[in-house]
Amino acid sequence: MELLAEIGPWGAVATVAGIYAIFAMGLQVQVGHGGVDNFGQVAFFLIGAYASTILVEQHGMGLVAGTLAGMAIAMVAAVIVALPTLRLRGDFLAITTLAFGEILRNVAVNERGLTKGSAGIDAFTFRIDIVRELRRSLRDQDILVDRLAPLLILTWVLVLVVALVTWLLLRTPWGRVLRAVREDDAAVRALGKNAFAYRAQAMALGAAWAALAGTLYAWNQVHFSPSGFEPIVTFAGFVIIIAAGLGTIWGTVLMAILIQGVLIEGSRYWLDTGLPNAQEASLRYMVVGLALMLIVRFRPQGLFGSRAEMAAADE
């Protein structure tokens, strides 16, 4: 019997799209619901990837424990970043969070003792311990599975879990106050709620999702280095949530598939420009930049959002 015996290149693309769906969901919580214009979301992605990898590979922690620890560390980091910066005006917040991401990437490059620097670090426990064992035991029962299939399935299960949890959280009283905070700080303060605390919590929740995505990224890459954590990762997340529409949950998942999957990762399989690879890659990101500009200019509410969301984001 064959079960996803050969998932092919699109399977790999789908895994990356799922990772970005989780990553962007975190950004959606922060920007779309908390009104925090975090331009350094990649920092928490980096924390998730490195923390879980270091804990699992170097300190023998279990995969699940390592993943959760990565998310916890990212949440703490998010609160620490939030404390001083959330009081800043919008564009200063953007610059500081962007700088935070760059500082962490700098640290990852320079602190070789911890991160092995630009040479990169291995995260093969998942691929070896879980996937290889799983395939071996399935093969004994005559079931063939692609070696990339388990992570693909795990990622998309987690996408659904993350989307569902986010969706539910936003429907609790907590979620309703968070929305109110974004629309009008003053009114919320009048109700005796601490607007700042709600924003910090949104920041932390978003960071946890980013860290989870980071861990999945590490497992998918097996070997990764600081160059995978450039600001462009955050910006890809922004393209996804803006195209989907601020505030939308399921739209974010769909846009992650279309933008990160079909457009950025997948275009090499369906688009043949006849250009050399490097030039084709440049072209892809030119399109991403252009798409962002066009959406911001002509459809700031995104495909599924309402115009009011973008306006409220400016309060």
């Binding site: 920007v31 214009d37 331009f39 953007a94 911001v296």
Partner: peptide
């Protein structure tokens, strides 16, 4: 503001 920031990024 957010629109301007993202436009500049794009």
């Amino acid at each position: 503001l957010l629109q301007k920031l993202l436009m500049a990024i794009g």
